[in-house]
């Protein structure tokens, strides 16, 4: 029984870890080419930020920064234009999302179709914690049964001894012919 619970807990735990840990490992090429000129440092930083969180539509797992695909080059150029024209963060996201959908965002928005993606890990975690709590509680109940106070222990010992004495007496009376056996039965 405890083995079953253990394996369930392990399974739930592994699922939770698997789902919670972010599967998105964007490939950043160390030598990201940035041929663009920016007027301010903050514009440059915005460009770097967005080229990291936006995914190349052609590639399964590369951001705009790390991809050599033609479309990634075009979108980097477009991103540079948007930043130079003072688009806000939300306007840049909207621009990309309205053309390329949620795919272009590494972090999908929370809505109906992505709710499982966002909340399943939490549900799995809660189930895992619940199972764990039940397990620990059950263990504690077992422990409680096993632990006796010194007084109770002494009383139980005394009762056991009196029962054994009674037993030995009975067996002596009924099977006087086989003493060796009766000795074994008496519990020594």
């Amino acid at each position: 029984m405890s083995r079953f619970i253990f394996s369930t807990v392990v399974a739930v735990f592994m699922l939770t870890v698997g789902l919670v840990s972010n599967p998105v490992v964007a490939q950043d090429s160390a030598s990201a080419i940035m041929p663009f000129e920016f007027e301010t440092e903050s514009e440059r930083q915005r460009y770097q930020y967005f080229s990291k969180i936006l995914r190349c539509p052609m590639c399964q797992n590369q951001n705009l920064n790390g991809s050599n695909a033609g479309i990634a080059t075009d979108l980097r150029r477009e991103l540079h234009r948007l930043i130079s024209e003072d688009y806000s963060d939300q306007e840049i996201i909207d621009f990309m999302q309205s053309r390329y959908g949620n795919f272009i965002l590494y972090e999908p928005p929370i809505n109906k179709s992505t709710s499982v993606l966002w909340f399943a890990p939490i549900v799995f975690l809660l189930v895992g914690v619940a199972v764990l709590i039940v397990l620990v509680r059950r263990q504690r109940v077992n422990d409680d049964v096993a632990v006796l106070s010194d007084q109770e222990l002494a009383a139980a010992r005394a009762r056991l001894q009196s029962l054994q004495a009674q037993d030995a007496k009975d067996s002596k009376e009924t099977s006087a012919g086989i003493p060796s056996n009766s000795k074994a039965l008496s519990g020594k």
Partner: peptide, 13 residues
């Protein structure tokens, strides 16, 4: 030529 309409259409390639 520039691929600008392509971007508006969400073309990847």
């Amino acid at each position: 030529r520039s691929g600008r309409l392509g971007i508006d259409l969400g073309v990847a390639g």
